[in-house]
Amino acid sequence: MSSTEQGTSSAAPAEPTTAPESAAAPEVPESFYYVHGKDKVVHKVSAGALQHSALIHGMISNLGYTEEQAKANPFPFENIDGDILQMVVDWCNQHKGKPTPPEDTNLPKQKEKLFDLVLAVNYLEIKELLTYCCKQVAMMVKGKSPEEIREIWMIPTDAEDEAAEKEAKKRAGKEAAGETAAAAGDAK
């Protein structure tokens, strides 16, 4: 299992104080957690960055892991491709502790990845990133005709949909008949 260090160590925001610098409270070390996707590549991410994900944030809050325990138990997201998880981690790091801008220019330029990113972000419950992604998806069809939209998004026509439905029913019927026949054969 390989590992990439994605997190950056940064101090927790100190309370405003009028005391001299030398008397400031010692910096609290930031805690890190580990996540991996389908490719098993482990990403080290700070708790601050992970706060964007309501799902992971909830998991962290419930577990109360120590640094060692966190390292030994990376969160597995087997349903998310490694490159997509990398994008998500990058975004969380870039926007750690910052107010999210109204427009995000760092979304994937490869449109074929966008839908995978949308699914991952939706699953990880990263609200702001999901909003940006959805906007990006909406932009894909700007100025396109219905036929072009259908082509870009692979939307089946109603006729194709009906044909596929019929085919599925037919297949299900055949399978059911096959199972009945097999069961009858077994009974004999």
């Binding site: 074929e112 839908f115 995978d116 959805c134 998806v137 870009i152 692979m154 939307i155 089946p156």
Partner: peptide, 26 residues
């Protein structure tokens, strides 16, 4: 879709709640 997909994952793979969010941005 029955056609050869351009992308591995596409609009039709999105759950309705995501589609609705995207429509909301249109």
């Amino acid at each position: 879709s029955s056609k050869n997909p351009i992308y591995d994952t596409n609009w039709c793979d999105m759950p309705p709640e995501i589609k609705v969010k995207c429509i909301g941005k249109m």
